[in-house]
Design a protein around this nucleic acid. Structure first.
Lengths: 185, 185, 185, 185
DNA sequence: GATGAATGAGGATTCATTCAT
DNA sequence: AATGAATGAATCCTCATTCAT
């Protein structure tokens, strides 16, 4: 008797493979056929676990989105000091390191997200993040710096992969340093 | 004699409409049918002016790419001082303001570009830009700052549109200020 | 001890729900999923009770078909008088009032039935009915009248539902009157 | 040089073949692939001429529907006498003889039509026809007779095909006789 | 300088059906 | 008596591309 391929957690495996391909080739260019083939199942199997292609994407976002929401909530409960904002940056970096692929997808598939309801949701979330990182009393450049800090984290976290000289975490750490420096009074 | 619809410069009009749609909805999701409809011509007409869909995209990039190449060439001919780098930032900002849509497209369609020859070309170009903005002697955070400066320009130039309180140019100017500040010794 | 959901007669409930949906949306457009959902069971459950989708349909027909067969047999055993034919009409009307949905299905899904063995069976049955209601000695219009009498019953029985001014039975009674009038020497 | 297959009137040929198949096997069961194959073209060719499968159906209805509308309009402009109604029946029969397949489709695909906008349209049309053939002063059986007269025409026109002893037109003529007899004061 | 008609490849989705549990 | 997971075949439809005119 041969050991059977574990028939469990197919749902989770679909999400993983899908995210990989969505991040690499883009949502539109990724055919469900590819996902299915890579998993050794039929296209129809995907439809057993998810209602639509979009649903796969949404399900991927939903989980990690919660974490960001919690971070924003936490920040709102704190005094709006520079130190709070710096802590937000640090925690955001921590969150993103575990979600590199999703991060990449978010940054590189804006047109897709713009046309999807989930995109609107993410847009609101990012707006919330920007809100806790800046305030209207700041100069325009400083407000830009606050927003750029978020991008610094993203950029550092994503770029790590393609750079051979430095490890992913080294780059991500450097990104935090740069980002913290962008948060001004 | 009836007044003729000016049939002039159809080629250029195709490029304009195409870029608009590519930037808004993404390259993959934009059908040639849409471009044709928006122009009031047939799909086949597009094929009179361009060999393929990809060719439309490439032709759009080619022109403005030259400007960047020239900027890089110019920078390489200068002494690698901070002031040179700052001037590169300033000139890059100037270039980009005239190419907002293309800039948006470049940032938001990475997966598409990754799969296309033109993407490889652009990647090299950006690498060149990074090269003149940083050097190996710098600390990792400072190298990141150099790269981030480019993104600051992009971000500032693109974001301008969706922000009501500040004009596009105000934001772009602020972005230059932030970017210049990111260029270190 | 908790009160059990009555698991009784699932088979019959499937037939009921299926007939409702088949009649309303047509056999082809009715998915087994819909039937299952409406019953609160799984598709697979349907397959415990019936071998195929077609089998559900056949099982629905089989029961009430017997009654028609008996009516035809009875008619054949009587003298072929006008009065016999009128009695057939009356009895047929009685039969159909208890099977409105099935009647509707039969009339509105001819293409489906034509492609299914059960359709051939029903066709023979109707031919038998026509046979006892007409004879070759009649004029062509009178033969048509005999056949039309059957449709008058069907029409009257089915239409009753959508007409608010008159009750279903009033219309069905009127249909009998019209049908009887169509049976000629 | 060989004589080319006439590349013209593809649109009309699609409608013809489609109606044949829709009438024979039903709308749902008829795959666009079948229509295309029967015509020796690609599925995509159908989509050049029609926007959707439903659109093919609608386009088929639209033409002959006009004729019925005109008939109803004409009837409404006449005095509501028995003779007017009888003339409506005669003209309706004439109309239907040229549209046997469409007539068959209408009668045998009610569930499909019920779910389609075009079905609602046809329902209104038939209601209009019934309106000019009956009036509220009549007894219920006589109102039913008026409606049944329409079905007599349909039935007679359609049945002709499957009956070998009598020609289609003989049966249709008989149907008119029966139908006229169903129109009462 | 452009169109009308068509193709071939491929997309997402749905369905009836199966089978081990 | 019924489910959970999956399949294979089919569906409608869209797209980039071609080519004779």
């Amino acid at each position: 008797m041969t050991t059977r391929e574990r028939p469990r957690d197919t749902r989770a495996r679909i999400q993983q493979v899908a995210l990989d391909l969505f991040a690499e080739h883009g949502y539109e260019k990724t055919a469900l056929r590819e996902i299915a083939e890579k998993l050794g199942v039929t296209k129809a199997a995907l439809y057993y676990h998810f209602k639509t292609k979009e649903d796969i994407l949404v399900s991927i976002f939903t989980d990690s989105a919660e974490q960001i929401d919690e971070l924003i909530e936490w920040a709102r409960a704190q005094p709006p000091t520079v130190e709070t904002r710096r802590e937000v940056i640090r925690r955001y970096s921590g969150l993103m390191r575990g979600n590199r692929k999703l991060l990449q997808f978010m940054h590189e598939n804006q047109p897709t997200l713009r046309d999807l309801p989930i995109g609107e949701t993410m847009k609101h979330r990012m707006a919330g993040l920007f809100e806790v990182l800046t305030d209207d009393g700041q100069s325009l450049p400083d407000q830009l710096r606050g927003r750029l800090a978020v991008f610094a984290i993203s950029f550092g976290t994503m770029v790590g992969m393609s750079d051979t000289k430095h490890s992913g975490d080294e780059v991500a750490d450097a990104a935090v340093e740069v980002a913290l420096d962008l948060i001004r009074e």
